[in-house]
Amino acid sequence: MDSVHDLGGVEGFGPIPIEADEPVFHAAWEGRVLGCRFLMGFWRLWNIDANRHSLEQLPPAEYLAMSYYEKWAAGVVNLSAEKGLITPEELQAGHPGTDAEPRTPPVDAAGVRAFLPQGRPAAREIDAAPGFAVGDKVRAARNMHAGHTRLPRYLRGRVGTIISHHGAHVFPDISYKMEGEVAQHLYTVNFSGREVWGDDAEPGHSISAELWESYLAPAR
C-alpha cells in the first residue's frame, strides 16, 4: 500500500531529532501503551504483519503528527475494535458494556516474561527450491497491490544483486490478512546508491534490503 509510512527517500524532512541521554520511556503512559499493544497480540487475532498494516492505515497527516506510542495506541484500539474485542460504545463510555462477557487474559506476567526470550521466528521450511542464488542480479517489482507489503517504494523497479539467502520466511503480503500463512524464499538484495537515486546519489554507498522471491525478477 502506497502510504506515508513508506518513508525511504522522501525529501523535505529536517534534521534528525537526536536527544542526548534519552530515557526508554518519556512518560509512564508510553510503557502502558507498549504493554497493551504487546499483550493484545496474545489473543492471536492479528499477527505482526496485521499490526504493521494497522499503522499504515492511519490517515497520512495523523501518521506524521503522532508520536510512536500514539501510533501504537491508535493501532491497538483500531485492531481491537475491528476484531470485536471492544466496541465503539465501550470506547466512548470508557468501560465494558453491560452485556460484555468477562474474559481471562491469555497471558500473565510470568507468561510474558517467559515468552520474550522465545519470540516468534518467521523462518519456515518449504518444498520449493529457491529461484535465485547469491550473486544473481534481480529487478524489484514495479507494480504493487493496495494491501500490506514490505517492498519499499524507493526500491521498486531497481536492479540489485542478491548477497544472501535466508531460506523461506512468512510472506507478509498474505500473512497480514489472517487467512492462512505462506512462506517464500527471502533474500538480502544490495542496490548501489547510484542505481536507486541516480546521478545525484552521494558517492560510495549502497542499500541492502530483505526482499521476498515474488518481489523479484531476473535481471541482466
Binding site: R32, L39, S80, R103, D108, A109, G111
Partner: peptide
C-alpha cells in the same frame, strides 16, 4: 483482555 501485572512486567 489484558493483565495489568503483565504490563508492569514488560515495562
Amino acid at each position: 483482555l489484558v493483565d495489568p501485572a503483565a504490563i508492569d512486567a514488560l515495562v
